[in-house]
């Protein structure tokens, strides 16, 4: 049965990628490891989409709809992150671009000996 071979192979490939992804977490720490894991996740998802969900043989319209979902998710994620990545730049002198955490604690302003507003409440 030729049509059974493809999904079984996809299943095998999936397990290998899964193993690689988990192993990478143990071996490579930090950003590179994370990026690798996310890449592996995309490969695993594509395997399912193409072989188990038939996107490999589906007509283009279905592919467009599948892609549209991903596209719109990307729009939401990107534009939201634009806000968080750039939060407080150009407005609050001491805040770091990569430290949104600071923002949640309060923007550290000039230390003119003022009583911090947050000390009185919040």
């Amino acid at each position: 049965m030729r049509d059974v071979k493809a999904p079984v192979l996809a299943w095998g490939a999936y397990l290998i990628v899964l193993g690689g992804s988990v192993a990478a977490t143990k071996l490579v720490s930090g950003l590179m490891g994370h990026l690798f894991s996310l890449l592996c996740a995309s490969i695993m998802a594509s395997l399912i989409l193409s072989f188990f969900m038939g996107l490999r043989v589906a007509n283009n319209l279905l592919r467009v709809f599948a892609l549209a979902g991903v596209m719109w998710l990307a729009i939401m994620l990107t534009l939201t992150m634009v806000d968080y990545v750039m939060r407080d730049i150009g407005e609050c002198p001491n805040a770091q671009a990569d430290d949104v955490a600071r923002n949640a604690q309060g923007c550290p302003l000039d230390s003119a000996g003022n009583v911090r507003a947050s000390d009185t409440g919040a």
Binding site: L79, V82, D83, Y84, V85, M86, R87, D88, I89, G90, E91
Partner: peptide
């Protein structure tokens, strides 16, 4: 364009 509801909300200037 959804962020135009949030110009004074404290989102990033550049957003």
């Amino acid at each position: 364009v959804w962020g135009h509801h949030m110009f004074v909300s404290g989102q990033s200037l550049y957003a």
